[in-house]
Design a protein around this nucleic acid. Structure first.
Lengths: 227, 227
DNA sequence: CCTCCACTATGAGATTTCTCATACTTACCT
DNA sequence: AGGTAAGTATGAGAAATCTCATAGTGGAGG
């Protein structure tokens, strides 16, 4: 995580998403603009996040690491999006790991200093409530719609969502579990994508050759965190 | 909706779910205990709910009715569960229809009288935030796990969830869409359930003959709103 | 009464996806 | 260096699920 000293960019991003309107105090001064480089961790379970983050640019994924080391993909976030709001609201909640897929810019509010303030800020609490409710509504719609699509369609969307700089390098085992299909079938479809020329295998990962073709395949598939 | 005058039952239900601890004022006196008979509507879109409800007993389903009359199943609720909290928090949110699957008991707080109070009650807002966050986390887990199951397994769970007094009478078209399978396949599996003796066709609906067998089939499948 | 439309119902053949078996590779532990 | 575990890879046959075609039924409205 790197702090970005750029007040112009910061206030532009705040305006862009109406960040300051979600608080009843002057968050402009309190929040810092930070950059998480691709693949770095925004939150590392089981540590609790130190900041309430607000993702303004970039894509992240959330996953759970079991005691035995098994990793389970759970969700994806795209701007605008709070990160760490559950841990703030719910001391009992377990926290998960959040990783940057590509470079991510966030507005960060240190929990240590603002936790109490936030928990008594009705403007903020109402906004978070709305945010969670809308996110939930969209997720339900998304998931129940998506199960009607074929793996090729869902995988196309998944690749576009998780690729960074046209490089796709998710673990097949995790993806198969996340998409709810067998490992075998995932490989079949992936091989077919290579066959079709949509992907190219480069060493241990894949290069996206024709994002447009994949987007076309995925045309109706929507993803969590995406609007 | 029928108001139930039973202070003993009311305070027992409030204690059972810790309802009063989610508010900073004396909700014991403010809330009324009401009963929605099976199949009645708790909320009827596009009207906005008049009460903030808290489901303490019974099962409900939420669906959307399109302009053209098409009905889409969206979600299910089981206790403990707020109903109408999104409409309270988010004046912009569209409201959906919520229907009682079986007789439902709710604690009702009139929005007209308490809206402002609730929107400034940080205890309540924090609790709703936690509730929404947990619900969301569980839904994501549920949905992404469930897509790995076969229709027979998911349908078994669905029937148990939506049947009232062992009578299952959902519309096949709606269910097929909700479960993300073709109408054709749904009928195959339903016919198989009859073949197996799990269900019996009675006029225009089905009677659940062996809930235990269905539960066994559904054993690992979890449902939204279920813990 | 007739018509239209949504829902129900069933068959046949095609596609998608799964299970199981079997290897090879890489990382890590000892 | 040997051993183990996880991830990768591929084949073959089976099961789940889809699409399309075709029909019957019941209710709403003219």
């Amino acid at each position: 995580m790197r702090k970005i000293q750029n007040e112009v960019l910061k206030s532009q991003l705040i305006k862009q998403w109406g960040y300051d309107q979600q608080f009843s105090f002057d968050v402009m001064a309190a929040a810092r603009l930070v950059l998480f480089p691709a693949k770095s961790l925004l939150v590392q379970a089981p540590e609790r996040p130190q900041n309430l983050l607000y993702l303004v640019k970039g894509k992240t994924k959330l996953y759970d690491t079991q005691a035995n080391g098994k990793v389970t993909l759970i969700d994806f976030f795209t701007p605008p999006c709070f990160i760490g709001e559950m841990e703030l609201l719910d001391p009992a909640s377990s926290s998960f790991t959040v990783q940057a897929i590509e470079d991510c810019w966030c507005l960060a509010l240190p929990m240590a200093d603002y936790r109490e303030k936030l928990l008594h800020d009705t403007t903020f609490l109402r906004c978070v409530g709305q945010y969670l409710g809308r996110k939930n509504a969209r997720n339900i719609q998304t998931f129940s719609q998506n199960q009607a699509f074929t793996l090729a369609q869902r995988l196309a969307g998944f690749i576009l969502l998780t690729a960074n700089q046209d490089i796709y390098e998710e673990k097949h085992t995790q993806v198969a579990q996340y998409l709810g299909v067998s490992y075998r079938h995932l490989l079949y479809v992936l091989a077919d994508f290579v066959e079709q020329g949509y992907l190219e295998k480069v060493g241990h990962h894949y290069r996206v050759c024709t994002p447009d073709k994949l987007a076309q395949l995925a045309h109706e598939v929507s993803w969590p965190g995406t609007d």
